[in-house]
Structures are given as C-alpha cells and as structure tokens.
C-alpha cells in the first residue's frame, strides 16, 4: 500500500545529513568511482564548506535574507512554470554568470499539497519558505563560481584515469549539491535537510515515484544500500 505524504515526511525529517549525502551520491555519475569511506569524509567537508560560506555571506552583507544576498551578488532571479524530462523534475537551475531560474509550479503544488494533506507541516514548508530554500541553494552555485579557485566543492577532485603520463581528474557534482544544501539550510535556519524537498516537490507530480525516492533515502539511511 502506498504511504501517505505525512508518514513519509515524518520519517524523512529524522534522516541524518550523512544519509542525505549518500542519497545524493547515489544519483552521481561518479558514484561507483569513490569508496564509501572517502564519500563520508567528502560529505563532512562539503557540508562544512556550505555552512562556512553561508556565514561569510551573512558577515559580508549583514543579512541572511536570500533575496537580499542574491541582489548584492547581482544574481538575476527568473521564475518559470515547470520543467520535466521523462521522470526528472527540475526545481531550479543556476546558469553562469548570473541567472537563477526557479520553477514556480512544483513549489506552489507542494505548498498546496502540504496544506491539504498535512496541515501540521505548513509551518515547516510554507510556499515562501520553500522558495527561499531553493533560492539559497542556487545562490551557493553563484558563490562557487566566484570562489572557484579556493572553494572546497570545486577544488576537490578524483583521478578518473591515467595513461602514458596523462591524467584525467574530475570534480564531483554531488559535493556541490551537498554544499548548496548546507548553505541554504544555514541561511534559512532550517531544522531539516533541504534534500527533503526532493520528495515533497516530486510528490505532487508522481506520488508513486516520490515513494521510490523516499525508499532510496531510507535504504541509504538504514545502510541497506
């Protein structure tokens, strides 16, 4: 039987940062190239990096308001309706040098869903709050661009292959995402991991697939995968 949104959110609110990070890794194209122990070390550092830069923004700009920070960083926010490719639902994107796009529809649908099915969670997931969480996440990618030479999420690399003296290193996209989640969590003072929005926002489009993501997260959380 399919689980209700409220039940899933209750479980997910208890998932720790490491499990969310491992869930993010499970979607990474380089997932199988990194040993589990290394992943855990990387996750800790990526989170610390996100928090550090959030505090730096607050210190430099004297505010934790994401819209103000976006303004100070000259990032332009555009709202779009929705974007789905197959089963992939896009919530937001950052395109260098200064464009942030947020999809309004998933945010609005998620807020309406929470209101209708789980009013007790409205305080945690108001529409404006979800929007700010997403905006904070995308701001981090802009910050990464500005500090690309020094920020951990862009300087950590793994060796993919070497041949006759040639070496190919790659950055790890998951670290960037984990850093962005920690960044927006710190700026918006959230008591939960913003990764939870993956399930909440997806649910209004396809509840069965949202449950698959939920089970993936719990599987990671319980060490089954």
């Amino acid at each position: 039987m399919q689980r209700k949104l409220g039940e899933m959110m209750d479980d997910l609110l208890r998932v720790d940062d490491e499990a969310w990070g491992m869930y993010a890794f499970s979607r990474d194209i380089l997932n199988r190239r990194i040993p589990p122990v290394t992943k855990i070390e990387m996750l800790v550092r990526a989170r610390a990096c996100g928090i550090e830069y959030a505090r730096r923004m607050i210190r430099d700009y004297g505010t934790s308001d994401v819209r103000e920070i976006a303004g100070k960083l000259n990032l332009k926010l555009e709202l779009r309706s929705a974007s789905m490719t197959g089963k992939r639902v896009l919530f937001a994107s950052y395109t260098p040098p200064d464009k942030i796009e947020i999809m309004e529809e998933p945010v609005r649908r998620a807020a309406e869903l929470v209101q209708a099915e789980q009013p007790a969670l409205v305080e945690l997931f108001p529409q404006a709050g979800i929007m700010n969480t997403i905006l904070g996440h995308e701001i981090f990618h802009g910050v990464e661009d500005r500090y690309a030479q020094e920020i951990y999420t862009r300087t950590e690399r793994i060796l993919l292959w070497k041949l006759l003296g040639l070496k190919n290193y790659s950055t790890i996209r998951t670290l960037s995402e984990v850093g962005a989640m920690a960044f927006t969590q710190e700026l918006n003072r959230l008591s939960y991991s913003p990764f939870i929005l993956d399930i909440l926002l997806y649910y209004s489009y396809d509840s069965a697939s949202a449950e698959i993501i939920y089970r993936d997260v719990l599987g990671v959380s319980s060490g089954k995968v």
Binding site: R27, V89, F91, Y94, L201, D206, A210, I212
Partner: peptide, 13 residues
Amino acid sequence: KKISRAWAATPDT
C-alpha cells in the same frame, strides 16, 4: 558558456 547547475529529482538511480 551555458552549462548550468540544476536542482532536480529523479526516482531513477
């Protein structure tokens, strides 16, 4: 130079 960073969710690993 339009390569972007996206926040998206998918059930497929």
